[in-house]
Write a protein that binds this DNA or RNA. Sequence first.
DNA 1: GAGTGGTCTAGACCACACA
DNA 2: GTGTGGTCTAGACCACTCC
Lengths: 250, 250
Amino acid sequence: MQQSPVPPEPPIYRRIADGLREAILSGDLRDGDRLPGENALMAQYGIARATARQALSVLINEGLAVPKRGSGVYVRQFRPIRRHGSRRLSHDQWGQGQAIWDSDTRGRPYTVDDVNIDREVAEDAVARVLNSAEVWVRRRRYSVDGRPVQLSVSHFPATLVENTAITQHDTGPGGVYARLGDLGHAPARFSEEVRARMPHPHETVQLDLPAGTPVIVIGRIAYTSTGLPVEVNEMILDAASYVLQYDFDS
Amino acid sequence: MQQSPVPPEPPIYRRIADGLREAILSGDLRDGDRLPGENALMAQYGIARATARQALSVLINEGLAVPKRGSGVYVRQFRPIRRHGSRRLSHDQWGQGQAIWDSDTRGRPYTVDDVNIDREVAEDAVARVLNSAEVWVRRRRYSVDGRPVQLSVSHFPATLVENTAITQHDTGPGGVYARLGDLGHAPARFSEEVRARMPHPHETVQLDLPAGTPVIVIGRIAYTSTGLPVEVNEMILDAASYVLQYDFDS
DNA sequence: GAGTGGTCTAGACCACACA
DNA sequence: GTGTGGTCTAGACCACTCC
């Protein structure tokens, strides 16, 4: 009867999840493959329904699998869009365009829906940055291949853009940045803050996110060449759909 | 008996979770506050244990709450470290150092543990970028205030750094970049790819991540001024501990 | 219609925290 | 010791998908 300080075994649901995860990460189960369902796990391991569900929920919450009602649980895929930060310093100019991760580089077309434009009282942080209590706000949703991938909320100082096309649905050729240029306030410098977190419920709905998908949050300030902040843009990206790339000298 | 096409009510566990979430996001429940426990929810809503657990698990998987065994479920806090990409173009130089999100800017000291240095056969992606089949690999873990926040794996072309301090624990003054400089290969340009995803199990352990915490993955390539890639560094950051900042001109 | 995942109940035993 | 969350069983009904 050896009773030594054995490291406690992980619970059953976790061991099952570990096995399935390894099958996914090793490539035994590939993109879109069907995982063993609840009934299969119950039979195979002699466990209760809730325990089988718990095992599957681990993988779902890790973003490795997606449940489909009435059908099964499937291996999830990752095929991101590449978003470049700086364009001028783009590393294509000095490297061979090398990248560590694969991505869909063909410029798939964006579509924009759910445009909303309003004049609002700015939130504290935005008011502080733009030095303006009132702002024009442009809310948009971007989709690629019919799937929503990004939410964007742009804020402009109200007095700066009043009576310009920036307050209209159709901003004209070149978009809002061209209109800012018309005003003599062309954006020249950018500061981007990047975070990641789990999505809020409305983001889950608007981006149609499965469980286990974080969002990347980008807060971007656009400055003119003289250092005047002219736009604050908060973007919410489906993390499973994006790779961000930033190139810079030391 | 009106029986009109009512939008189906969300399940109980979700309604409970929604209520708790609102309490957290509105500030009624603050950092570190205790949420109603399983027993409290069972009594208050007249539901079974598993249902109460399910409601709490929603918030836990969203990263809004953290369970503590034998104690309760608590509201989680977010107090990130700010990590700057470019230093030369640092936006302090032309802006007023404005930022959208709060962060702990006081430079809290890093500690490094778990240093591992090995000569290895490179993974495909790394071999392709460095144009080198064999690499020296430096694995490190960084902690702040005693809490692990970042894992880092640096790869260097084996033939380039052989017999230098880069293959030693003590890399000398200025660290590995200074040693690369000694070789006439000082890094001058960087390309960073940024992703976010849920952590793998070993990352969860090494970073001591609670459920509902994504990781930010940074893949960074360092080039010399002549465009020679000299380092590939993959960093895994606790997303709840970081804000990344990138400044650039258009 | 058969099979799947989604929700829910009513129990049980355990390890752990806290007083 | 009491209360907490962690794991697990054995059922149930439902909505949905696929054949």
